[in-house]
Nucleic acid binder design. Structure first.
Length: 479
RNA sequence: GGCGAGGUAGCCAAGUGGUAAGGCCGGGCUCUGCAAAAGCUCUAUCGCGGGUUCGAUUCCCGCCCUCGCCUCCA
């Protein structure tokens, strides 16, 4: 598998350093509110990445943290009058529910910041010892950026000016630092932190945000690991600071590969609560769209391109045309898949573990290859449809159908797409509707077209659509 | 001001130095009493102006425009 590396700015092969397991870390969510669909673009694509790795025969060790200790979780838990633990547990559970709905494989290890305070303190001690950090008068500890000559390599900071206070915002603890670029490793206890403080050699306080990832990477993946991932916004300063902390501490390269995911836009602009275009999985569910449909949209653009999520149609109504389109597309795949399955005489769709063993992917090999080549999800989807169109179902014997069915399932498993249940679409209509539809069918058989049409209108008015088939009819709830 | 990404059909979105995947929408056809559904099918010369080249949407230069980051942020 090949993937673009932010550090070297080139597409590189992915090879596990230990020759066996590909070990990678993803910066997870801050659990202080519901994750939005932009967050999930990142997490879903990381999930496609992992699925592709595993299906290509490379075992993975996936670590993704939960940020449960930072300014926002403390601030909002206080505002809610809850303990930090109770508050973050609520949002952590919610995040996990959303992940499950979106068919994401759970990470193998999911550490949290609060659970690793001692690890972080130990790292600070090391950094002070090695001259990379200093304590300020109030008991905070800062990282001295100038002590790490490689600082800025990932974000190419050395090639640009550090514009101090570009946003006009100036941290209130700035006077404590030797340089504005220095960042906090340990924050001295403050009034507004409430009960959220821990003992340390520098007094009571709490670790800085950037440190948790460094500490947990080291704990679970070692001093050097294969890949580190996150949203583009984390390149600077978060990942830059992680590198500075970890590499200054260990003296070794932190990660061999940096995988960054470009943000989602909504209707051409940045998603923001203030803009009213901040969507969650639940919200879209309430609007009548399934998580699978959302997932389809989230993977419909390459991860290094901005993806424009269209929420409003041309009339400006919030009708989510992108999701409606995804529904049509998924149903087409589902019909073809069902036809292949029947032709192949296969009872159950093979589980993920079983799909790992399938190496003849038939016509769908190209769809898988597109993912292995820099995780090109849109090309992969294109190949799925192209392969579908090229298939001549009638000419396939059972063995060929089986190969094609398995190939399709591997491609879908890599993309993490769950197909809609076509049978479930045919919901049970109320008895009176069934009766009307049956009467209409009889009228139709008698070629009493006027009566048949009249009855169909009645059924339609009641919110159901009649689909005639060769043998009879089906009732579908109207959209 | 600095850094970066991008402008491909109505919308979303791949890709390529030799006239452009795929999805949605829309049109047509088949099927059908009609309709729906389904299947098939049609629809772009790639922001503008130069340059390099036998040939550029794809490389180079300039311009216009959009978006993101530089502050917590996936």
């Amino acid at each position: 598998m090949r993937l673009f590396d932010t550090m070297s700015r080139e597409v590189k092969d992915l090879l596990p350093a230990d020759g066996k397991t590909f070990r990678f870390y993803c910066c997870g969510p801050t659990v202080y509110g519901p994750a939005h669909i932009g967050n999930f673009r990142t997490f879903v694509l990381q999930d496609v990445f992992r699925r592709t790795l595993e299906l290509s025969g490379l075992p993975a060790l996936h670590v993704r943290n939960l940020t449960d200790l930072d300014d926002k979780t403390i601030r909002d838990s206080q505002a809610a009058g809850k303990s930090l633990e109770e508050f973050t547990k609520f949002w952590r559970d919610r995040f996990h529910e959303d992940c499950q709905k979106l068919n994401m494989l759970p990470p193998h290890i999911e550490p949290s910041a609060v659970g690793h305070i001692p690890h972080q303190i130990r790292m600070i001690e090391e950094l002070i010892e090695k001259g990379h950090a200093y304590q300020s008068e109030d008991g905070s500890v800062y990282y001295r950026v100038t002590s790490f000559s490689d600082y800025g390599r990932l974000s190419r900071l050395d090639q640009r000016e550090l514009r101090e206070g570009a946003s006009g915002a100036v941290a209130d603890d700035e006077y404590e630092k030797d340089s504005v670029a220095d960042f906090a490793l340990w924050k001295a206890r403050r009034e507004e932190d409430g009960d959220n403080y821990w003992d340390s050699p520098w007094g009571e306080g709490r670790p800085g945000w950037h440190l948790e990832c460094s500490a947990m990477c080291r704990e679970y993946l070692g001093e050097t690991f294969d890949l580190h991932s996150g949203g583009v916004d984390l390149v600077f300063p978060h990942h830059e600071n992680e590198i500075a902390q970890s590499e200054a501490c260990t003296g070794h390269t932190m990660a061999h590969h940096w995988f960054h995911l470009t943000h989602l836009l909504v209707d051409g602009g940045k998603m923001a609560k203030s803009a009213g275009n901040f969507y969650t999985v639940d919200q879209l569910g309430e609007a009548g769209f399934s998580p699978a449909e959302l997932r389809y949209v989230l993977i419909s653009a390459h991860y290094r391109q901005p993806l424009n999520f269209v929420a409003k149609d041309e009339e400006g109504n919030e009708s989510f045309p992108a999701l409606a389109g995804a529904r049509q597309a998924l149903q087409r795949i589902a019909r073809l898949s069902a036809a292949l399955q029947e032709k192949a005489g296969i009872a159950e769709i093979p589980a993920f573990e079983e799909l790992k063993k399938i190496d003849d992917r038939g016509s769908f090999q190209g769809a898988f290859d597109a993912l292995a080549d820099d995780l090109n999800t849109p090309e992969s989807l294109g190949k799925v449809f192209s392969a579908m169109k090229a298939l001549d179902l009638d000419s396939l014997d059972e063995a060929a159908a089986k190969t094609e069915f398995h190939g399709l399932q591997v491609a879908l498993a890599a993309l993490g797409l769950e197909l809609p249940d076509l049978e479930a679409e045919k919901a049970e209509a109320p008895a009176e509707i069934q009766e009307l539809a049956q009467q209409r069918w009889s009228a139709k058989q008698d070629k009493n077209w006027a009566e048949a049409d009249r009855l169909r209108d009645e059924v339609t008015a009641a919110g159901w659509t009649i689909k005639d088939t060769k043998e009879g009819f089906e009732l579908i709830p109207s959209a």
